[in-house]
Design a protein around this nucleic acid. Structure first.
Lengths: 267, 267
DNA sequence: CGAAACGTTGATATCCTTCAACATGAGTGG
DNA sequence: CCACTCATGTTGAAGGATATCAACGTTTCG
């Protein structure tokens, strides 16, 4: 979804995205000045560590919205999502699919696939995305030469698992209304930490089918549930824009856990 | 659940457990001769690696069935499950709980909790269990001094995540019958690799409430679904014993993925 | 033998799905 | 700028899958 194809209202907010504008392209070759890394959400690293990461990075990749980034059953590299949104999912033999998690800037992608012989899930870009590519065959040298970065990598893997734990709890133990609330709360929190929220509003690139597939609900029931919550006035969602109207109530509806998020590593 | 409290039929099969009998207690201090490590499912390690693991191991712990091994919200050490079964779960504020995964011998336990400040889930012993304890403060030295073991640790974390991915797919995308089938298939496969299956039969310590909580189903509906599958003759399950009667059909019912399992590391 | 935990069963209620139709909005080409 | 088309979102009605309720059976252990 390029900016141009977003609805008008969304386009006006496009500046909220943390992507570099074209004029900032030089940032892409300098990890020290990486706009993602310099967000307050991320742990500060020493220059030599950052330089090592940069030396591991083979290139910068772009995908259009809707493209496959990782194919189930095929080998994949290790990526860090630099800008945009993506999602990770599995498809059953008969075609039903389950979205496992959404991926936001700074998230590591393909760690499982880099460690195993090939990926067990698909990853598709939800918006146009940019990725930093780390060839899987260099992962070992990171463990060998930079144990603290290896530690951070493991930490990021554990964080991903923790999010899937949450999603499983949502799908397995919450009602439809609670599921929608929990998804919105979770994504809003993550986006907020990345500075993607302004005026309690963020660009929300999921369609209702994505929400349905993430929550294990039918499209129709997802629609009715979202609209019920919108009518309750806890959030607004239309034209690709999500506005948080009552975080406290939404959190209570979701039966959400309190979480504290410490500055996290970025490989 | 001590052996003594198992139903008679289960007791007769108790020899299938890979726990050392009392006379084998000396094995507990010698990781090189560890009966878990020497199963064909596990990757062979060089002696110096095994010795390092042994030096990291602070002690051997036992818990009775039903005891809490890890408390959500509290710090936890890093464990390897040596014998028995356990399960990992989250509880919502109002008491509903979601079982995230079951833990079998050789599985790493508490990695998330060791990396974060404290655990985000509970772990409870399903049977009597024995654990190898690795103090979390020694984890860093493993990364620093044994990069290949650090790599293996990350691998084990990724494997755990991959199992939660599967469970989320089961709960989110499969019908009740498919869910039960998928759970049975998954646990049977894992137990089989550990040599816990003889004559297509294994000690199955989950009650129907555990199955229900793992699958996001009510207890009553879980019961009816299990019995429907039993009447179909694909498996038998009673008195704590699971017998696989038609793996192929069960796998088809579950819409299960094909998986290959390579020898895996054991920390 | 009694108690407690666990499993089983039928009846009823509800949440969610499916089906089908229609509405809206965004991109496209005239 | 309008008309067209496709993707996406919306709505009501009907059916099915699962939950809840309540009672009873069975196993295990004290």
């Amino acid at each position: 979804m390029e900016i141009q194809r977003l609805p008008r209202a969304a386009r006006q907010l496009a500046r909220l995205r943390i992507e570099p504008t074209p004029g900032e392209n030089r940032l892409r070759v300098n990890c020290r000045a990486c706009p993602v890394r310099n967000l307050p959400a991320f742990k500060k690293l020493s220059d030599d560590r950052i330089d090592f990461i940069q030396s591991m990075k083979s290139h910068h990749l772009q995908f259009d919205a809707g493209s496959w980034i990782i194919h189930a059953g095929q080998a994949a590299e290790l990526y860090t999502l630099f800008s945009g949104w993506a999602f990770r999912f599995k498809t059953l033999p008969d075609g039903r699919r389950q979205i496992l998690n959404f991926i936001l800037p700074g998230d590591l992608l393909g760690l499982q696939a880099s460690l195993f012989s090939d990926a067990l899930y698909d990853v598709v870009a939800l918006t146009d995305v940019e990725l930093c590519v780390f060839p899987r065959n260099k992962l070992w040298s990171l463990f060998e030469r930079m144990p603290d970065l290896a530690f951070d990598t493991t930490w990021l893997g554990a964080r991903e698992e923790s999010q899937v734990d949450d999603n499983l709890t949502t799908v397995g133990a919450r009602s439809a209304t609670e599921r929608v609330a929990a998804l919105i709360i979770g994504l809003y929190r993550r986006a907020d930490l990345l500075g993607m929220v302004a005026d309690k509003t963020l660009l929300f690139p999921l369609g209702q089918q994505h929400v349905a597939d993430a929550l294990g609900l039918s499209l129709v029931h997802t629609n009715k549930t979202i609209n019920r919550l919108k009518r309750m006035g806890v959030f607004d969602l239309s034209h690709g824009l999500l506005t948080m109207q009552n975080f406290g109530v939404l959190k209570r509806i979701a039966q959400a856990f309190d979480i504290e998020i410490a500055p996290r590593p970025l490989i």
